[in-house]
Nucleic acid binder design. Structure first.
Length: 564
RNA sequence: GGCCCCAUCGUCUAGGCAGGUCUAGGACACCGGGUUUUCAACCCGGCAACAGGGGUUCGAAUCCCCUUGGGGCUACCA
């Protein structure tokens, strides 16, 4: 397990300093791939050095944050196997780990800046701010908020409050060149005059991201701030804040961004787009039915289809499910629900913007921890390649031990609607075993579910029936197989194999000519796990019933074919 | 618009900081072949890149500059 590296590397001759990293998500929804990657790098770095990873919830936006989202993020991280050393549900010496519970702390530091005239009150309304911004835009100038000559005092604040104006606190951003020392990018210089006085305390009394982040990183003794490149432009503000507060500056690591096939950042909006495209391709789509599946009105659906409005992810998923449309996975849960393994996700995501330098790409978590090194982070943005992820998943399906795979399979089955839920552990293991080589758990499920269906619920694939049953005397062959199976005792794989091979030899045909009709009879199409195992698992009684059903159902058509 | 980051096969990348050993290596995808009871898996082979232009140098994928292209930031979101 990963734990065995905890501290071990650090102890080894003291070559590596233990670091303290933090993953600081804002709880606005499920954890997405980009967030997972940031969390993973923080975790790998901490584990590699025998250091600490802190999970900090940045819930300072009262409008957007939900408690449910926090739980979702926690669950997703746990599923991936990313275990923080301090944070929600774990606790530690640096709590609380929810920023909403640290308001008094931020207030204290805000007051310090206020007292030193390094921060000041402002009373602009959003409308006024917007107007000034537009003005600057018209003049093709950058809008930068500059402090007034005389900073407002307590009386001004009271007056503004009385007038019902919003009261915020801004930081006096120094007008000087600021240099960011970044581990991936080296020295990045920002010329003076690029930054205005930004808000550190919002009108609702909550701190802004910039302020809370700087204060907490200091208090939590973070040594390495690992985050996306989109924060590089924020860093000068953070450094200025640190200087004003007398804090040290942590090491900064601005990772490249993961982009999607379409261009830009990986975004959940892609799921909506995919669904719209799919619905528009359906001729005479029953929009009313589709809307009702999603629990929305036809008008709402129409607005969504015309791009006038967005609908919730849950609704998008429900409709896609109903239509059988495969949506691109964006959030970590999406991958879970598509039958991916956390081991594969972690391995694949680690290789987005990082490489071990060696030729080995398929790695376990322990191998990743051991090999991880910030110096090997890539500067270039990387595209999320689903094909490669699938290949990685296929590898990890073979790599994880049987018990682990069983655990993953059970978790997967628990969230999807599958008749396989009926099976016990031994049966599930058997199913996984005969599906060796499958790319995902979803494929295992699809290929094996027929075993658990009622005998009269088999759906026949038309092409399979035509090709296998109604041609080359497929049905006649099936009849012979039926009689021989009937004459046998219990159907072991070996017994079935001997019988089928013997029959093929006797008739001077390939095994396929006898196996395929039987396959179609028991599962309705030409795709299934190996036939001998399938028959054994189905059992003699069910097998015979399904063969009889098949013979009966297609006998008439066969007669028609014979006339031709 | 301003500012910042980036640039090797279609994709992820090795090589770059210490220039020659790079006729540029690996992986995924793709194409061809093999194996085979189906789908997969598996095995063998193949295609395929230093964005363009200037420098520096005996020598540049590697160092410098410009162009182009991509990405990010520019909120009382994080």
């Amino acid at each position: 397990m990963a734990e065995k590296f905890n501290g071990e590397l650090a102890r080894r001759g003291g070559l590596v300093e233990p670091v303290v990293t933090r993953f600081a998500p804002s709880p606005t929804g499920y954890l997405h791939v980009g967030g997972a990657r940031t969390a993973l790098f923080c975790w790998l770095m901490a584990k590699h050095t025998g250091g600490t990873m802190i999970l900090r919830i940045e819930d300072t936006d009262q409008k957007r944050n939900t408690p449910a989202a926090t739980q979702q993020v926690i669950d997703d991280l746990r599923w991936l196997g990313i275990e923080w050393d301090e944070g929600p549900e774990v606790d530690g010496p640096n709590g609380p780990y929810f920023q909403s519970q640290r308001l008094d702390i931020y207030q204290k530091y805000t007051q310090k800046l206020l007292d030193a005239d390094l921060a000041y009150y402002c009373f602009d309304t959003p409308e006024e701010l917007e107007a000034t911004r537009k003005e600057s835009q018209a003049k093709k100038e950058n809008f930068l908020y500059r402090r007034p000559e005389k900073l407002p005092d307590e009386k001004d604040v009271e007056k503004a409050r009385a007038e019902g104006r919003p009261v915020v606190i801004r930081f006096c951003m120094p007008n000087e060149e600021i240099i960011v020392n970044d581990i991936v990018r080296g020295e990045v210089k920002f010329p003076a005059g690029e930054f205005g006085d930004f808000i550190i305390c919002k009108s609702d009394g909550y701190p802004t991201y910039h302020f809370a982040c700087v204060v907490d990183d200091m208090l939590m003794k973070i040594t390495h701030v690992i985050r996306g490149q989109e924060h590089l432009m924020n860093t000068p503000c953070h450094i200025a804040l640190q200087k004003a507060l007398g804090f040290r500056t942590p090491n900064y690591v601005h990772m490249s961004v993961t982009i999607s096939e379409g261009g830009g950042k990986l975004s959940k909006r892609e799921r909506g787009k995919t669904l719209v495209k799919a619905i528009k391709q359906i001729p005479n789509a029953d929009l009313e039915k589709i809307a009702s599946v999603g629990g929305i009105t036809s008008d709402e659906l129409n607005d969504f289809l015309n791009g006038k409005s967005q609908i919730e992810q849950e609704i998008i998923s429900a409709i896609a499910d109903y239509l059988g449309v495969h949506l691109p996975e964006i959030n970590v849960v999406d991958f879970f629900e598509s039958g991916y393994l956390p081991e594969a996700m972690v391995n694949f995501i680690a290789l987005l913007g990082w490489s071990s330098g060696g030729k080995k790409e398929i790695m376990t978590k322990d191998e990743l921890i051991e090999a991880f090194d910030l110096a090997r982070l890539t500067k270039t943005n990387s595209l999320f390649d689903r094909d490669k992820l699938l290949a990685f998943n296929t590898e990890h399906m073979k790599l994880v031990d049987k018990e682990t795979l069983l655990g993953h399979f059970k978790k997967y089955l628990a969230v999807i609607d599958s008749p396989i839920q009926k099976a016990d552990d031994d049966m599930l293991k058997r199913i996984l075993q005969i599906n060796e080589g499958a790319k995902t758990l979803e494929m295992v499920e699809h290929k094996s579910r027929f075993l658990f269906l009622d005998n009269d619920k088999i759906e026949y694939d038309e092409k399979a029936v035509q090709k296998v049953l109604l041609k080359d005397n497929g049905l006649a062959m099936l009849q012979i197989i039926r009689d021989r199976l009937d004459a046998m005792g219990e159907l072991s794989e070996k017994a079935v194999e001997d019988m089928l091979r013997g029959l093929a030899e006797e008739k001077q045909v390939g095994l396929g000519k006898v196996a395929q009709p039987l396959r179609v009879a028991i599962c309705g199409n030409t795709i299934s796990p190996p036939i001998f195992d399938s028959i054994q698992l189905l059992g003699k009684e069910n097998t015979l019933i399904r063969i009889d059903n098949t013979l009966q159902k297609f006998a008439a058509e066969n007669a028609k074919n014979a006339e031709k």
